[in-house]
């Protein structure tokens, strides 16, 4: 049984069709890389999964629950969106950390707010907050940032910011963690530390979808690769199939531009 089933998703902005009949599925603990040139629709696809955009057609099913159906938009209330998007975590290209909070507070904020919405929060306030804090500290330790927990985002390097952002996304224990070009905004010498963290996550059997331009990284870490072009899924398969034996001319052309 697939953990994620994306079926016939399409999306237009005005007259431009950005996603055209996208279908794919993902098994638990798999890492999927999405590659393709800029403007091919990779980022929009991730944003659809996270409910930042609403697809025009198609369905999205997570763990056998249909969380999106373009035929049934009445279901898409703010509350349902909020509940269902928590199946996914999203790490942005530009981090989008909250500047007024420390690294630790960035990681724990959403969890604390969620806890405060619960009925039993008041009775166990202290214990709940303490356990959230401990989880946050553990996540920062996992990211190798224990000594940076009290720093504000502007005091951190780009690579450190992105690692905080990953910890922040993990704090809500998503089923699937999405990365939107996580290293594109970083200086080349800082990409390594972020890729290393993602690789470590893959080893812990985290299910992930990674939109990336790091071809060798995608080849190494992925179980599955999708090549997108002009809104279509043009080619998909194992890294070996897509990178070493591409069937489509467009894929060959795209990959060769990276090997120059």
């Amino acid at each position: 049984m697939s953990i994620l089933d994306v079926s016939h998703i399409s999306k237009s902005f005005g007259n431009t069709e950005v996603l055209k009949d996208i279908c794919f599925s993902l098994e638990e603990s798999e890492v999927l890389s999405i590659i393709g040139s800029s403007g091919s629709g990779k980022t929009t696809l991730l944003r659809c999964l996270n409910f930042l955009e609403t697809p025009d057609s198609g369905t999205i099913t997570v763990k056998s629950n249909k969380i999106f159906d373009a035929e049934d938009l009445d279901y898409l209330t703010d509350a349902n969106k909020r509940k269902n998007r928590l199946h996914f975590g999203l790490v942005f290209q530009s981090f989008n950390l909250f500047p007024q909070y420390t690294a630790l507070e960035n990681v724990t904020l959403a969890k604390e707010l969620a806890a405060k919405r619960e009925d039993n929060f008041k009775e166990n306030k202290k214990a709940i907050l303490e356990s959230i804090k401990q989880e946050g500290l553990d996540l920062l330790a996992q990211m190798g940032l224990s000594d940076r927990k009290d720093n504000y985002p502007h005091q951190l390097s780009g690579g450190q910011c992105q690692r905080v952002a990953i910890a922040r996304a993990l704090a809500l224990k998503p089923d699937i963690l999405c990365f939107d070009e996580p290293t594109s905004a970083l200086d080349p010498e800082l990409t390594g530390e972020v890729l290393k963290v993602i690789k470590e996550l893959a080893e812990t059997k985290m299910t992930m979808i990674i939109v990336t331009h790091e071809m060798s990284f995608a080849k190494e870490v992925s179980d599955k690769v999708i090549f997108m072009d002009d809104g279509y899924v043009l080619e998909s398969g194992t890294p070996d199939e897509v990178f070493n034996h591409p069937k489509e001319d467009r894929t060959i052309q795209f990959l060769s531009s990276f090997n120059k």
């Binding site: 509940k83 998007r85 942005f92 530009s94 989008n96 950390l97 909250f98 959403a110 707010l113 922040r168």
Partner: peptide
Amino acid sequence: PVGQDEAGLVLGMTKKEIFFKVKLLQMIK
């Protein structure tokens, strides 16, 4: 930046929480 809204949304915050906990202080500054 719109990224602040989006970061709050994907973390499951309500619009009210995003305004008061994330944006208000940045706006005041």
